[in-house]
């Protein structure tokens, strides 16, 4: 790695660390309902929302009521997004007169945005009206992020309370996380992004003449959108020439800010954060990366604060940071190392003051290798899925990092809420394993971990690998799955594995190369997104309810400390073992074999 890369990563980690305590403390105060300035100021709005919706804020909920409320809320969100897409041609704010999306694409996108996945089978600037983008997609960016946060808060309450039948009120938690956390942060970030050049308007698209004609190649597709192939199985390319360019417009900054803060990731434009209208400068890139991590990282402090021992939160934060640094180092090193086949042609791939060196394919020149690899790690270790470079063009081991980050369950800071609750489930499994080793009843934060918690934790952890592996196996076995793959051999397998991993983990980033806007992929990935989001949530909230009902055991000599180095190592080991052992066979068929084939030819 270059010195510039190390400096960028260290500065980024320090900036994140600086934000953890103030933001985490603020969120703890919000969800504990303490009389802070923000809650006093927002009280009229908050109580107006409750009156409008008929919410009784004094009514606490059991875990079942809390879960059903959350599920109904997200179902209504998905139905609304579906309706908007199908009706957009008759609705206002559609200057380009975009037609309604196909039913399967609308289904996929509705599930995608209601589940915080934001997988995009469509191209935003050529399919979605401004109304659909704002009222459908951006609103879901807020609400799905709030849904993730409230599950984490409910689990924290389960750990913090004792002998309680309830875990909070889902409507109050959803309202507070939206009104006091997401909206203010998104507003500040949107203004900061506009200052960097991110656009915000309702203008129709602008056609401009180019100074010189541009000739380019693109894969030829059939009527269903699948790439056509020649007799050897390679994609057929068509050569096109253009003299004009259409510049997309739209309310991008407002959607960009919540896209990052809510770890949603669905871009207004198809190129996502690689497009200069979404991410124009190095500073906007840094702000966007920081925005992705700020809430997931700060929630660890919120956790420590709400359970009455901030050391617990710092231990979880430390485990996440160690994993993060390891992953970003692998990505940066391999991208800077470059492609050996290109080096064999005599191309200089060493970094120098005149060039970034390494593998620059698929990366924006204004970001370079380190800022691209760091962004890729940030976006896939959380459940964001925004991209500022083409993950498909990374070296095999560079591309392995985003894939493996997601397969770990996105617990390295993770998505807003999802990262913390998934990591706490791993902590429960970790103390259970430690309890087995030392022959004591496992306990976490004074709560006995018994059969029910372990069954629920197992469900929460195993749902994702099950649907990823079954989905990938089904896709590679069926012609409908194979037909959308743009590259042959191991890389093509990686593209399918990446798609199912991304959908099932509610990440939403794409490896590229795959043309997934087909009936098969829209339906299959839609199913994976729903199951990968809500089935673990049900199990996590069941754990929350069960833990809240338990008595707290006082700390004794036999209690395993869960704020020390030993616990951090145990937690990292549990995450790695579960993630690695589940996915190593699939990874061996994809990026690992591709790496070996590449370097064998060097």
């Amino acid at each position: 790695m270059t010195a510039a890369a190390v400096t960028l990563i260290v500065c980024f980690l320090v900036l994140t660390l600086v934000c953890v305590k103030p933001v985490g403390l603020y969120m703890a105060n919000v969800f504990d309902g303490r009389p802070i300035w923000a809650l006093r100021t927002g009280a009229p709005l908050e109580h107006w929302i409750y009156r409008l919706c008929g919410v009784d804020i004094r009514r606490e909920m059991s875990w079942q009521q809390y879960t059903i409320g959350l599920l109904v809320f997200n179902l209504i969100g998905a139905l609304a997004v579906y309706a908007l897409q199908r009706l957009q041609v008759w609705l206002p704010l559609n200057p380009q007169k975009f037609a309604a999306l196909t039913p399967d694409s609308a289904f996929n996108t509705a599930v995608s945005f209601a589940t915080n996945t934001n997988w995009q089978g469509y191209s935003g600037e050529s399919a979605m009206s401004y109304l659909t983008q704002m009222l459908g997609l951006a609103v879901q960016n807020f609400l799905s992020a709030a849904s993730g946060i409230v599950v984490a808060i409910a689990l924290i309450r389960g750990l913090a309370r004792h002998s309680a039948d309830t875990i909070g009120n889902v409507w109050v938690d959803l309202t507070r996380s939206t009104v006091y956390v997401l909206v203010p942060l998104a507003l500040v970030l949107a203004i900061a992004l506009v200052s960097q050049g991110v656009i915000q308007n309702f203008s129709a698209y602008k056609d401009v003449s180019m100074a010189e004609a541009l000739t380019y190649q693109q894969p030829k597709t059939d009527a269903a959108g699948n790439p056509l192939r020649d007799a050897a199985g390679h994609p057929v390319q068509e050569t096109l020439t253009t003299h004009a360019q259409t510049l997309p417009m739209g309310p991008i900054a407002s959607q960009e800010s919540i896209k990052e803060l809510g770890t949603n990731g669905g871009g207004f434009l198809n190129a996502n954060s690689a497009h200069p209208y979404e991410n124009p400068t190095a500073l906007s890139n840094l702000l966007e990366m920081l925005a992705i991590l700020i809430i997931p990282a700060a929630l660890t402090y919120t956790f420590g604060r709400m359970v009455g021992d901030t050391r617990q939160g710092w231990a979880v934060y430390a485990a996440m940071t160690i994993l993060f640094v390891s992953m970003v180092s692998i990505a940066c090193y391999n991208e800077q190392r470059g492609n050996p086949l290109i080096a064999r042609l005599g191309v200089d791939q060493a970094a120098s003051p005149l060039q970034p060196g390494g593998n620059m394919e698929g990366k924006e020149a204004r970001f370079g290798i380190a800022a691209s690899a760091l962004f890729a790690t940030v976006t896939t270790s959380t459940s964001c899925g925004a991209v500022n470079s083409a993950h498909d063009s990374y070296t095999p081991l560079g591309g392995f990092v985003p894939l493996f980050n997601m397969q770990l369950g996105e617990v390295v800071y993770g998505g807003v809420g999802t990262g913390l609750y998934s990591m706490l489930i791993f902590a429960i499994v970790g103390v259970f394993i430690a309890g087995l080793m030392i022959g004591r009843t496992p306990e976490y934060l004074g709560k006995k971990i018994e059969a029910f918690e372990m069954k629920m934790s197992s469900i929460a952890i195993l749902v994702m690998p099950f649907i990823v592996l079954v989905g990938t196996a089904a896709a590679v076995s069926m012609s409908a799955g194979q037909g959308a793959v743009g590259n042959p051999q191991a890389h093509g397998f990686s593209e399918i594995l990446y798609a199912f991993t991304s959908a099932s983990n509610n990440n939403g980033s794409a490896f590229g190369g795959l043309s997934p806007n087909t009936l098969f992929y829209n339906s299959a990935l839609g199913l994976c997104m729903w199951l990968g989001r809500f089935w673990p949530i049900v199990a996590v909230l069941a754990v929350a309810g069960s833990l809240a009902a338990k008595k707290r055991i006082p700390v004794s000599d036999g209690t395993m400390p869960t704020h020390g180095v030993t616990f951090v190592i145990l937690l990292i080991g549990t995450v790695l073992l579960v993630g690695a052992l589940t996915f190593v066979p699939a990874l061996a068929l994809g990026p690992i074999v591709e790496h070996l084939m590449l370097w064998a030819r060097a």
């Binding site: 579906y82 729903w530 049900v538």
Partner: peptide, 30 residues
């Protein structure tokens, strides 16, 4: 087709609702 995909959303919700009920029963004391 719209009916099929709206029904698919409702079926996904119903399946998840059933999971809540099943896990709640699993957690009840015997």
């Amino acid at each position: 087709m719209d009916v099929i995909f709206i029904l698919a959303l409702l079926v996904l919700y119903a399946a998840t609702h059933c999971l809540v009920v099943a896990l709640a029963r699993l957690g009840e004391p015997e």
